[in-house]
């Protein structure tokens, strides 16, 4: 079992090490996301203060929205931004056929690489944002703008589980983007479609709870909710009992579906590669 997993763990470790080396990128991302988070919060604060009549009926209170914004900024690296840049280079140079020279299952290989890359980008940025929004802001007397801790310990555990599932989901989307790149020979198209979809439908631009009530069910069932909105709801403690199980279940179902789709698509793409040459 361990022996079977050796190559994939190695891929994970190697990619994690390389990604963690990009300190400057992580710091720059951190600064940008703090800036963006603060602006977001100012806009929400203005809206909430302007709508006194809706204060009691709003699906999320202002401080919940503020926490939501900080979690979203902290987990921005969880979004499937693009295909693996190394795969894109290999596609351009034709070296991608050489991926077939390794005695490995390519879907697992790519998936482990993607997971490591996302995690390597996520961890430093998330820790910095939590430190800034959860510690620095309250100490600076800006407690109203700060990230609040999870609603309870079980909610925190569910949040962690949901984020891990979001990681697997994001990695399986990245593998799909890799496959699209292999088929279309360009990394641009897939990202151009997926990035805006992910940003809007994950709740990154606007918490999904603030969308019109009529589309709430659809919004919660679509796959991108698992990249941010569902983990946030666990953190805020608004998902309990049956709804919590449904949320985790939908994440697991989408991971399974995208894995099956990805494996089938990869098989077809590789078959074509074997026919037409690299």
């Amino acid at each position: 079992m361990i022996r079977a997993a050796t190559p994939y763990l190695a891929a994970f470790r190697a990619r994690w090490r390389t990604t963690m080396r990009y300190r400057a990128a992580a710091l720059a991302g951190f600064v940008t996301q703090c800036w963006w988070g603060v602006i977001n919060i100012m806009i929400y604060a203005a809206f909430y203060h302007g709508a006194h009549d809706a204060a009691g009926t709003a699906p999320l209170g202002l401080h919940q929205t503020v926490t939501y914004v900080w979690i979203m900024q902290g987990t921005l690296a969880l979004m499937p931004w693009s295909c693996d840049p190394e795969i894109a280079d290999a596609v351009r140079s034709g070296a991608v056929a050489h991926e077939l020279l390794r005695p490995i299952d390519l879907w697992w290989w790519w998936s482990c690489r993607a997971t490591a890359r996302i995690l390597g980008r996520l961890v430093p940025r998330a820790l910095l944002i939590v430190a800034f929004a959860g510690l620095v802001l309250p100490l600076a007397g800006l407690g109203a703008w700060a990230l609040r801790p999870p609603a309870s310990l079980p909610d925190a555990a569910l949040f962690a589980l949901s984020i891990l599932m979001g990681l697997a989901l994001s990695a399986s989307i990245v593998v799909l983007l890799n496959i699209v790149t292999v088929r279309t020979l360009s990394p641009a198209g897939g990202s151009a479609v997926i990035t805006p979809l992910a940003l809007i439908l994950s709740g990154n631009l606007l918490p999904l709870a603030l969308f019109p009530g009529a589309v709430q069910t659809l919004l919660i069932l679509q796959p991108f909710a698992g990249l941010g909105d569902l983990p946030c709801r666990f953190w805020l403690g608004t998902l309990h009992g049956g709804r919590a199980i449904l949320a985790l279940g939908q994440q697991a179902a989408w991971i399974a579906a995208l894995t099956l789709i990805g494996r089938a698509a990869l098989r077809r793409a590789l078959h074509r590669l074997e026919i037409q040459g690299g």
């Binding site: 056929a97 077939l100 020279l101 590669l273 074997e274 026919i275 040459g277 690299g278």
Partner: peptide, 9 residues
Amino acid sequence: IKILSGILR
């Protein structure tokens, strides 16, 4: 070479 390497059919 590619056929012998298994990357081409």
